[in-house]
Structure formats: structure tokens, C-alpha cells
């Protein structure tokens, strides 16, 4: 996983609450067996009409938001299914940061596994940002995970909090499977007490 320390990029405003994973990456695109290549399908049903033509009104299709890498959205972003295809699609499209008043748990967690920084900000701050983007006061943000801070070039700044261990993993691009594997002894000794009827294989012919 790519480490995340600091990122400067253009904001794309998506002023909707409850953006669910079915919108982020519709199910017809979940059939790939790779992790990559999902960006072209991001927000597919909003981005394209049934003929596959881009909807000029949708934010991602607007010239001024082209090459955005920071997504700004409403509350409960990422609700719905556990599909990690959602952060894969965001990342593959070019997003490294998502800012919203709140996130659904599984999506939030999945972001950290993929080098995307999801940032919770108070609703008022998010609204302020939406206004500043609409009024073209704020175009880009610099998000600094080391300093837990973000700012634009026009006097906006906000602090944010990320749970310390998640922050540490993201800053270092850590593979947490390797961390858990180091606990092999503890895992093995725990396993000695597992009830034998938990095991599936031996009984499969019953």
C-alpha cells in the first residue's frame, strides 16, 4: 500500500448525503477478479446515461473539476455493501482523500487498507467548504496527515483527527497482515482451546 503523508489536490464537490457503495461502483462492474481498472466505472450510473454518454451536469464530468483528487460529500458516505471495489474505484480514478461529516464503518475501514484518507469534519465545516468551492474561493486543498491539518490558499484551514493506529499505518504504508503474522505464537496457543466441532473439513462427508 502506498503511504499517505501529505497531499495537495483539487476538490470535487458531491453535495449528497448517503452516497452508497452501489452508486460508487454499481454491481455490474464487480465481476473483475483484479483490484485495478475500476476507476472508469466510478459513479457509473450518475456519470453516464443508458447509452454510455457522459451527463454534463454530473460533477465529475465538469471541466472545472477534472483531475480532482479530493472528494467532498454529505453525511454517511459509503453506506451499503462491504465491497472494497468502492475504494478501489475511487483510488483508481485518482482520489486520495474523501471528506464528509460521517462515513459508514466498513467503507471507512476499507479506505485505510488502500491508502485513501477518509476525513470526518463537522457538518458546518463541510458546508463551509461546499460554499467556498461553489463560490470558487477554494479550488485545491493541502491535506497534511502528519500535522492533522488541511488548508487552502485563501485562508481556510481545519484540523482533523484520525485514530492513532490507523494514522500510523497510513503514514507508513504498513501491511498489517505482516504485523499479525508476527503474533503466530499467540495465535497457535489460542487455537489449542478451540472446540473441535468448529472444524469443518473433517465432517464434510457426514
Amino acid at each position: 500500500m502506498e503511504a499517505f503523508t501529505q497531499h495537495t489536490g483539487k476538490i470535487v464537490p458531491l453535495d449528497r448525503a448517503n452516497v452508497d457503495t452501489d452508486q460508487i461502483i454499481p454491481k455490474q462492474f464487480l465481476k473483475r477478479v483484479e483490484r485495478t481498472g475500476f476507476g472508469q466505472y466510478l459513479f457509473y450510473n450518475w456519470r453516464f446515461d443508458t447509452q454510455g454518454n457522459p451527463d454534463p451536469d454530473f460533477e465529475l464530468n465538469q471541466e472545472k473539476y477534472a483531475d480532482g483528487s479530493i472528494l467532498l460529500s454529505g453525511a454517511n458516505f459509503g453506506c451499503g455493501s462491504s465491497r472494497e471495489h468502492a475504494p478501489w474505484a475511487l483510488l483508481d480514478y485518482g482520489f486520495r482523500v474523501v471528506i464528509a461529516p460521517s462515513f459508514a464503518d466498513i467503507f471507512y475501514n476499507n479506505c485505510f487498507k488502500n491508502g485513501i484518507l477518509p476525513i470526518r469534519l463537522p457538518e458546518e465545516t463541510v458546508n463551509t467548504l461546499f460554499q467556498r468551492v461553489a463560490q470558487e474561493i477554494t479550488h485545491t486543498l493541502t491535506v497534511d496527515l502528519e500535522a492533522n491539518k488541511m488548508e487552502d490558499h485563501n485562508g481556510f484551514s481545519a484540523e482533523f483527527k484520525v485514530e492513532p493506529y490507523r494514522r500510523y499505518c497510513l503514514l507508513n504504508g504498513l501491511d498489517d497482515i505482516a504485523v499479525t503474522l508476527q503474533k503466530a505464537d499467540k495465535i497457535s496457543s489460542y487455537e489449542k482451546n478451540l472446540p473441535s466441532y468448529y472444524q469443518v473439513q473433517e465432517k464434510q462427508n457426514l
Binding site: 472494497e84 475504494p87 476499507n110 487498507k113 497482515i177 499479525t180 503474522l181 503474533k183 495465535i187
Partner: peptide, 11 residues
């Protein structure tokens, strides 16, 4: 998520 599926498979 799938990263965690991998985590559980491995550990």
C-alpha cells in the same frame, strides 16, 4: 472488505 478477507485467510 477484501483486504480483511485476505488478512483472515492468512492469519
Amino acid at each position: 472488505g477484501t483486504s480483511e478477507v485476505e488478512h483472515v485467510l492468512a492469519t
